[in-house]
Design a protein around this nucleic acid. Structure first.
Lengths: 209, 209
DNA sequence: TAGATTGTTAATCGATTAACAATC
DNA sequence: TAGATTGTTAATCGATTAACAATC
């Protein structure tokens, strides 16, 4: 899809640009130069220009960048112009927190099912999204085209459920389980390891980075 | 505390080493070489040795690394040999999910208070941890030595509460709010931006990294 | 001792920053 | 046009990998 390979570091920065541009847009700022944005975001102007130029020339010499246009373009690059259907596997606190998070919905990530092993949750729903049992997952995925699965269950469960997901055409996994899933080449994963994040904070606290 | 400055990239990898070593320990593995570990973790053996040597020689030529010893040492480096007291600001789904997450407790992160603005939550408690009102926060922090605050509330609230926290001696902030907090130099922050994480996944899905 | 594997230096690779010509 | 600011090339910096002598 892309010509050259974009580095991971750049991709990681894109959502942050997107957030700042969204804020500027709300403040009705029309144009911004790389150096203004660099002061705002605490990065170098050079980096901003380099990053953006990976995707083509969004700016204009002598003028800078049009905020609205750049916001939209980065949105497109991130795939936020599309909608995705999503399931959450694991209806614990974290799974329910994600299900309740309306902002995702607004960005086009539609949660259409939650799954758990706990029979007491069967039939319960969160924001009208039904909680189903994991043994119904295969059938559900057969009947509904799902793009993304969020895994908010213990590591062992995540390992078990992963092949079911990939066998039924899921292409992206948002993994909150404390494990590195072993998946086919063509499946993309984004890990969110909260305990590892907390350990990094603890490290910083002790070493005062 | 440390002699040389450890790079961010290294610190980010430490918790992952810690996790793998913990797993090996459970499997009663006694020793491991950098090359075995490298195969397991999908990194180079060279990187493992380089990373560990930032903190001193934990291995032994011809033998490798003692799993238990290395696990403990990395734990110490991460500051997991200490205990921390923690408050959660924002008793929404995410805040409650963190409060309910017992594993943090086991690692020495003791949650002793949750705060919210919603008066209906006043007096309620989560796992015996009381939910208090944000206007009681200053007083509470005066009476209790708190090390870490987790911010699980909207961006605007996070910006407002940050100075209260830092004025009362909090040194570390685990920030889930969608904003880059502006904090004094000596305060450490670890950001968890879930929506940015989801956007990265969306990028990958569209560009098939 | 011989074999294995670390600790560490040197080489390579990639990412960030600086500089400036192109151009709006 | 003159001034501002991009797009892009070159220079620098940092992180990863390779190699190997030290040593258990």
């Amino acid at each position: 899809m892309e010509e050259r390979e974009i580095s991971k570091a750049v991709v990681k920065r894109l959502p942050r640009y997107y957030r700042y541009l969204g804020n500027l847009l709300e403040e009705k700022v029309e144009r911004i130069s790389s150096s203004e944005l660099s002061r705002l975001m605490n990065v170098t102007a050079s980096q901003i220009r380099q990053d953006l130029n990976n995707f083509g020339g969004f700016g204009q010499q002598g003028y800078g960048y049009n905020v609205k246009h750049l916001y939209k373009e980065i949105g497109k690059i991130l795939g936020l112009d599309k909608t995705y259907s999503m399931v959450i596997i694991g209806a614990g606190n974290l799974g329910q927190a994600l299900a309740n998070y309306v902002r995702f919905e607004k960005r086009g990530f539609r949660i259409i099912g939650i799954f758990d092993v706990n029979p007491r949750l069967s039939g319960v729903s969160v924001r009208r999204i039904p909680i189903m049992m994991i043994d119904e997952l295969g059938e559900f995925l057969g009947n509904n085209k799902i793009d993304i699965a969020a895994l908010t269950l213990p590591a062992s469960g995540a390992e078990e459920v992963a092949p079911i997901l990939t066998d039924h055409g899921i292409k992206a996994i948002w993994n909150f389980a404390h494990t590195d899933l072993h998946l086919p080449e063509d499946i993309v994963v984004e890990n969110v390891h909260l305990s590892e994040s907390l350990m990094q904070l603890s490290y910083k606290l002790n070493h005062m980075i």
